[in-house]
Amino acid sequence: MFERWASDRADKRAPNTIKRYRGSIRSFDAFANGRDARTLTGDDVFAWAVGRRDVEGISSRAINKNDLVAVSSIFRWATGRAAGQLVAGNPASGIALDEPRITAQRERTFRDSEIAAILMAASQAEPDDANPTRSAVRRWCPWLAAYSGARIAELTNLRREDIRTEAGITFMHLRVTKTGEARTVPIHRALIELGFLRFVKASVAGPLFYDPKRHRDGSETTPAEVQGRSLSKWIRETVKLDPGVHPNHGWRHTWKTRALGAGIEERLRDAITGHSVASVGRRYETPTLAMLANAMIKFPRYEIQQKDDSVST
């Protein structure tokens, strides 16, 4: 049933969504142990969810947000006429686990000391002749995230040909995004001064931050995702980072907060970071590359004190 749904939704859902749902459905399918989908009940779905929480140690929030959404979406589709009404009802409808109240222990943006520590570590990342793309990820992706607010997987998917210049504006073309909608992000002048374009020019055609030859075909985890997770682990090991902030995703919060302080208007902040706009009217507004570039000029540089007292930006 899931494979039929995935085939039907292939042009309607982001690939990452289908991939995420697949893991949840496999777990539920293993729990069902070969039973006919038409015989499954709400009690079955709830028992599976409880097992995910109590046996596998997955948080109630993650189960509600991911697993139950996936199962409910598949069954809801299967009840429709377009699917041939494969099942009579949706056993996951209304099922949810109680979630403990979580109080945020700190803000999600990086503090100045954390910004300095991460970017310093990135600047000092040692070249790795045995795995050059891994060292490239460590060297450049934190800086790219710091000056764009892009998701790490969007950056680790960049290819040499995605770095372009049009009408005097150099930008990243982010092809692989969470929403499935590509977007262009102007490259901040500070990144150019740091040598990012020299790195791109010296790179071979194809992916900038992973080597396809090092990854087997058919793996559910893409090479770009592997590199992003590896970067997160490396930052945790290298920098004394508060557990309450994410070493990669924290840049999205930090970029938007700094952009707000710099007076960059909300519509442009959303366009650069790929966030959904707040109203129907805003959807009719498509900021041009020149507008985005002018906004990026306003974004403040990071003043990072090096050990030799020089300053990188």
Score class of each variant (00 low, 15 high):
A32C: 09
A145W: 09
P142D: 08
V45I: 14
A125T: 14
E99K: 05
S135V: 12
A49L: 03
N131V: 11
C141G: 07
D98C: 00
D43P: 00
R111M: 09
A146S: 09
G42E: 12
E126W: 04
I25T: 01
T133E: 12
S72C: 11
R76W: 02
T79K: 03
G89K: 08
S24E: 11
S148G: 07
G89Q: 07
I58N: 00
D36N: 15
E99P: 00
I58M: 02
D44C: 03
G84R: 01
W48F: 12
S93E: 15
R151G: 07
L68R: 02
V50P: 02
V69I: 13
G34K: 11
Y147D: 07
F75N: 03
N33F: 11
Y147R: 08
L119M: 09
R111H: 10
D112V: 07
I118C: 06
A117S: 10
G51K: 04
Q124V: 09
E56I: 00
R52E: 05
S148E: 09
G42I: 00
R134Y: 12
N33D: 15
L155W: 13
T39W: 00
L119W: 06
W143T: 07
P142R: 04
A62Q: 11
C141T: 15
A130R: 12
D54F: 05
I102A: 13
A78G: 02
L144V: 15
R106M: 09
F31R: 04
L119R: 08
V55K: 12
R35A: 08
S60F: 05
G80F: 06
R38Y: 04
F28S: 05
G34P: 04
M120L: 15
N90K: 03
T133Q: 14
N66I: 10
G57C: 10
A153P: 01
D36K: 10
T39E: 08
A125D: 09
T41Q: 04
D43W: 00
P100S: 03
I63L: 05
R101Q: 08
N66M: 04
F110I: 00
G51N: 07
A88C: 01
R139N: 09
G94Y: 03
D128T: 01
G34R: 10
L68Y: 11
W140Q: 11
A116W: 04
R53F: 01
V87T: 12
R53A: 04
A104D: 04
K65T: 14
Q105L: 06
F31Y: 15
G94N: 11
A32S: 10
S93F: 11
R26N: 13
W140E: 07
